[in-house]
Design a protein around this nucleic acid. Structure first.
Lengths: 204, 204
DNA sequence: TGTACATCAGTGAACGCGCGTTCACTGATGTAC
DNA sequence: TGTACATCAGTGAACGCGCGTTCACTGATGTAC
């Protein structure tokens, strides 16, 4: 019998990844140190570098993993015939707002990602494309191009609203933001944006 | 004649504030150190504490100032009778995307603010209320409550889209996000969200 | 008018601390001959 | 079968560095008497 089970190394790596993923989403990438992650994972500092080349390498791996999991959720919803409305209401819920550690990595980290090196942004960009494509497939109607346009608008609204609802320090305003964003996202998903213009009445 | 001009102290404080404001928006709060700010401002480390009580105090002052400036811009647009469309197109432009240092502090820092102490979040919340109220006043039609609802949705879409456009590493996708968000924000401002539901056809 | 002290805006070195990263080492197991 | 070496997953102390913050000091000016 081996000192470590077969696959032990993979399990450890997975564990570090999960701990880092939670902590990054909870507190931000710059605010979290490797020592804290390794301690939470039940390991010592030095072991980190037998699994990852650098902190940036970990960040990239965390993003790829966390975004892939979210993409998988979209795939499941699609396969189960779940309406986009469920996805939207789930995303813009007080539960998601209050549990950033297990929530959407984009809402938690998007502004930090914009300041990270090319490789990290490449990883983010690729997975974001996947998520947009999956949301597009969930749109109730419209051409492929039209569905994609809607998916982008809906996603932007969701990400922006969740972040605002987390930052404001007023329970009522926070819930007001979530509720209004649900309505807005549903309307956008339904295709309300085409041809609409401020100041120009919508023709009947 | 005094060693320092009258108001010299205020000028210095303003200068530190401006430097910090730019650097925070460009690189994030956690990633920027006081030494760097003071060096850029042409002063030494120690002088910082004759103007601010702590880094957190500076963060709060920067937010209050930068958000007040944005609110003022909304006020000016309103006073000059500028259409909301101009505000939206300006916000969701490649220029704003590429110049975060002088851009919207909310888009640059909202997820970090969510993790800061109460006093900082209070400051953010108050100014965000002001901005929402000013955007509501810019809405083309609708009751006060209706305008406010639209303002919240439009703002969330703007903030989310600008951040996504900054994070993705693909010029085409970035511009696609901005352009679609402009359409979506205009439609939402025009009041498309009321009564719309996915899967339920809009009644004529 | 002279002088002693106060004030102002800042200097610049130092504090303790935690960061990302490196590295010599450990100890259980596997492998070669 | 015995033994010498390799491998694996990890330990834990140390590296240099930059962080936020403190503090004794400076030097020009203002004020009291």
């Amino acid at each position: 019998m081996a000192r470590y089970d077969k696959g032990h190394r993979d399990t450890t790596r997975r564990h570090i990844l999960d701990v880092a993923s939670s902590q990054f989403r909870e507190s931000g990438i710059a605010a979290i140190g490797l020592a804290g992650i390794m301690a939470e994972a039940g390991l010592t500092n030095g072991a980190f570098y037998t699994h990852f080349a650098s902190k940036e390498d970990l960040v990239r791996a965390v993003l790829l993993d966390a975004l892939e999991r979210r993409a998988q959720k979209h795939k499941d919803n699609l396969a189960n015939g779940l309406a986009l409305e469920t996805t939207i209401r789930d995303y813009l819920s007080p539960g998601h707002r209050d549990r950033a550690a297990s929530g959407c990595p984009t809402a938690a980290l998007v502004s930090e990602i914009a300041r990270h090196p090319k490789a990290t942004r490449d990883a983010f960009t690729g997975k974001t494309c996947d998520i947009i494509a999956l949301m597009a497939a969930q749109m109730p109607d419209g051409s492929a191009a039209e569905r994609r346009r809607r998916a982008i608008s809906v996603y932007a609204t969701m990400v922006g609203a969740l972040q605002l609802s987390r930052a404001v320090n007023d329970r009522l305003l926070s819930e007001e933001i979530l509720e209004n964003a649900v309505e807005a996202a549903l309307a956008l998903a339904n295709g309300c944006a085409r041809g609409s213009r401020v100041g120009v009445p919508v023709r009947p």
